[in-house]
């Protein structure tokens, strides 16, 4: 009886602990142990990926569909190479546009993908032909102030 109780509670404790660990690892830490790859990768080159981080969302029509997996710097062309993964069932046309956007003023950066009108689709590993870099608010404001001065 006493023996059974001991083993039962230790077993229960270990199960609860492992559930918590795997929940954190798989859901929070995005560790994919058992999942088959349901995603394909696309690459976008941006003049500036300022503020974008791996794990950031890739959104279409305001819905999160994929995520950024890697950000590298291309030292030859002075561009940011952003690798993102898109679910297999979402096909993007070759003229789709990827742009770095911000939620709110100081919110997270994410990548917004707008679909184009071409007949052909991007293959895994392809690059977006058109990209828009992140809007720099300071730059925007200074441009606005500058143009106001000129016109005034």
């Amino acid at each position: 009886m006493g023996k059974l109780k001991l083993e039962f509670f230790v077993g229960l404790f270990v199960i609860i602990g492992l559930v918590a660990v795997s929940y954190m690892a798989i859901k929070m830490g995005d560790v994919r142990l058992f999942e088959q790859p349901k995603y394909y990768e696309l690459i976008g080159r941006f003049n500036s990926a300022s503020g974008l981080k791996p794990g950031a969302a890739v959104e279409m029509s305001g819905v999160k569909v994929g995520r950024v997996t890697d950000i590298q710097f291309d030292a030859e062309r002075f561009e940011a190479i952003v690798t993102m993964e898109i679910p297999n069932h979402i096909k993007l046309t070759t003229d789709s546009v990827a742009s770095v956007r911000t939620t709110g003023i100081i919110g997270d950066k994410f990548i917004k993908v707008s679909i184009g009108g071409e007949e052909e689709f991007l293959e895994p590993g392809d690059q977006f032909e058109q990209t828009e870099s992140s809007l720099d608010i300071e730059e925007l404001i200074s441009r606005f102030v500058f143009s106001a001065e000129q016109s005034g």
């Binding site: 954190m24 690892a25 859901k27 929070m28 830490g29 995005d30 560790v31 791996p54 794990g55 950031a56 969302a57 999160k64 995520r67 997270d108």
Partner: peptide
Amino acid sequence: WQGVYTSIDWQHL
């Protein structure tokens, strides 16, 4: 939950 899932990565764990 999106905040939780996107901000935690293996470094934090």
